[in-house]
């Protein structure tokens, strides 16, 4: 089987995946650096049975996946999944449509209407760039004065995609939230991410500890994955008095801190899944 792995920089995750592919008999893995790609859109020059996307840039990832998919090459993840997960708005829409619990969320297009949305949600609330990761440029807005300041700064200094205001209710999570990993129809493991800071991303210093996969966590994680189109995804989950609540879904998941923590060989599970997709 011929596997293509698209990447730009090689993170720990890509290295672990490459090692895992190379350890499998009958599997040939080729790396494709997205900085060197030139797609002739009229002609498929690739003979892969499956392509796994591991780009660090969201924009390159979605474009490349779309090209491979249109050439008839199966991809992990699919274009639909990448497109939805790359937008917090589309993800929230998919989660709401699937009837899954998620923090209250408003969308607005101007600073004035965004302020009205925040007043209605109440303070503190959270405003996020629609596309973004690693906890960057998230704002917890504690009162109306802060709201006005943030909105003015976004309007004056932000690039155009900061003019879509994605605003969420602030969830009290008592120092931790959950990151669960879904491969196909299974939630294979999960971690707690602990932090004194309200942003718990491990990329921002959040500490990982094992989180047992309860029935409820398994169920909501798989349903959230399916809501965005399935595949290999990592899900941010809040614990609330009413039950688990889905914050977001990531489609090029990082897992370096979660293998030893959970005792689950995540790259092996991902590779199993990719090879299964390639055999279809």
């Amino acid at each position: 089987m011929r596997v293509g792995l698209i990447h730009s920089i090689i993170r720990k995750e890509e290295k672990l995946l490459l090692d895992e592919f190379r350890s499998r008999p009958g599997v040939e893995v080729a790396t494709i650096d997205d900085r060197e790609i030139v797609f002739n859109l009229h002609k498929n020059n690739y003979s892969f049975d499956v392509v796994i996307e591991r780009c660090v840039n969201h924009s390159r990832a979605v474009h490349a996946i779309k090209v491979f998919e249109d050439f008839g090459i199966p991809t992990v993840n699919t274009y639909q999944v990448a497109k939805i997960c790359g937008s917090k708005f589309l993800t929230t829409q998919a989660i709401i449509k699937a009837g899954i619990r998620t923090p209250r969320c408003y969308l607005a297009f101007t600073p004035e209407s965004a302020l009205a949305a925040m007043d209605e949600l109440g303070y503190p609330c959270v405003i996020k760039p629609n596309t973004g990761s690693w906890g960057r440029l998230l704002s917890k807005i504690n009162d109306r004065d802060a709201a006005e300041a943030i909105l003015e700064h976004k309007e004056v200094l932000g690039s155009y995609h900061h003019s879509i205001f994605y605003i969420q209710e602030y969830m009290e999570k008592r120092g931790k939230d959950i990151r669960s990993f879904v491969v196909g129809a299974n939630c294979i493991c999960a971690i707690y991410r602990h932090s004194e800071h309200w942003i718990t991303n491990t990329a921002r210093g959040g500490r990982a500890s094992n989180c047992p996969v309860t029935g409820e966590l398994h169920d909501i994680s798989v349903r959230a994955a399916q809501a965005v189109g399935g595949g290999v995804v990592a899900i941010d989950v809040f614990e609330t008095p009413e039950g688990l609540s889905i914050n977001e879904v990531n489609y090029t998941m990082e897992f370096r801190n979660s293998i030893d923590t959970t005792g689950v060989n995540i790259p092996a599970k991902v590779v199993d899944y990719v090879l299964k997709v390639g055999k279809r």
Binding site: V56, N57, H58, P129, G132, S133, S159, A234, Y251, T252
Partner: peptide, 11 residues
Amino acid sequence: EAPQEEEDWGE
């Protein structure tokens, strides 16, 4: 030198 982080970098 490693590339600089861009706004759409992430997971």
